[in-house]
Amino acid sequence: MCAMHGCRPAFRVAGFMATDLFNACSAVMTKKKESAEVSIYPDWCKGCGICVAFCPGHVLELGPDGKARAIQGIECRNCGFCEYHCPDFAIVVKTKRSTAKKEVDHAHEG
């Protein structure tokens, strides 16, 4: 079971085994329980909503300006789906290091 967002390695889609689907997850399965933070460049985000719709942890939402933003207080599972699937290269998922202070650029989170 994928620790990040609860999906099983062999993902069932439309009743069929679909290991390739959401393969992004398998890549991060090894990186156990590192919590991460999502940053979004609002200037580049076009608000298509793909990241919001498919985020397994429901970390993202569309803000009042129509751009994606991270919802405060929900832990990102660092699966990387949003980063791989953002057509506008507007999302960065950064791993939080335990020692590092929480000084990631929040300005972008709108």
Partner: peptide
């Protein structure tokens, strides 16, 4: 994960204006 986008940025032409011309949600 951060390396993914940073990597792409390394290959983009930064004298071109972003975001690109494609529609929101376009898979290109």
């Amino acid at each position: 994960m951060a390396e993914v986008t940073q990597l792409i940025h390394h290959y983009l032409r930064h004298n071109k204006r972003f975001p690109h011309v494609l529609c929101p949600g376009c898979g290109h």
